[in-house]
Design a protein around this nucleic acid. Structure first.
Length: 198
DNA sequence: CCCTGATTCGC
DNA sequence: GCGAATCAGG
């Protein structure tokens, strides 16, 4: 495979979207992530960070010193990875944009945007699934956030505010973000939409 | 061990 | 220009 304009366009687009080199390579096919990264660099569109420092590396090269790699200024902060998430946010306020003259005595608004983990609300989940979940949690690999990958169950266990918190980490079910047991409770049969009495 | 990007260097 | 090998790191 060669870098046709078309393929380069895809590369640029995906890289711009924050896709990883491996993902791009997968998409393009016929190339490895190394090839993608190499191309990215040759195209000069590496630093994906926003206001990344541009000018740098005033490194002087003249001394026949050791070709040992040194000085690797990498201010690149980890960009938030938009992984597959249950998208919690929903309410979209038009916001008249008019500023409030006086701050209300109290704010009754609870800070929204809570990435509340999809905890199994003790709803009507098949007792079977619940059982397997409890079982699975015993076997959880107890992975930290860093250890999560595309193929590790991302089901949170415990309270994030305590030491008692980790992720399941078992092998995920193809495609899904969770292991089989957790997929069972995460994606409900769509039947339990009991209308709440009001 | 899984993954990420960065760099080097023979081709 | 290309990309495998390697490096450095989460």
């Amino acid at each position: 495979m060669s870098w046709t304009e078309e393929r380069v366009e895809i590369l640029k687009k995906m890289w711009g979207e924050g896709q990883s080199a491996s993902q791009i390579a997968k998409e393009l096919g016929g190339v490895t992530r190394n090839a993608v990264i190499g191309k990215v660099h040759r195209l000069g569109l590496s630093n994906r960070t926003t206001g990344a420092a541009a000018a740098e590396k005033p490194k002087a090269e003249a001394a026949p010193e050791k070709p040992k790699a040194e000085a690797k200024p990498k201010p690149v902060k980890d960009a938030p990875k938009p992984e597959a998430k249950p998208e919690p946010v929903a309410a979209a306020e038009p916001e008249p944009a008019s500023e409030a003259p006086v701050v209300p005595a109290r704010r009754q608004i609870i800070p929204a945007g809570q990435p509340l983990p999809p905890q199994p609300s003790a709803n009507e989940i098949s007792p079977e699934a619940l059982a397997s979940v409890r079982e699975v949690e015993k076997k959880a690999r107890k992975l930290s956030l860093m250890d999560l990958t595309e193929r590790t169950c991302k089901w949170p266990i415990g309270d994030p505010a305590t030491e008692e918190f980790w992720f399941c980490g078992l092998p995920v079910q193809a495609g899904k973000p969770y292991c089989e047991a957790h997929v069972g409770v995460a994606f409900q049969p769509m039947s339990s939409r009991r209308d709440r009495r009001r």
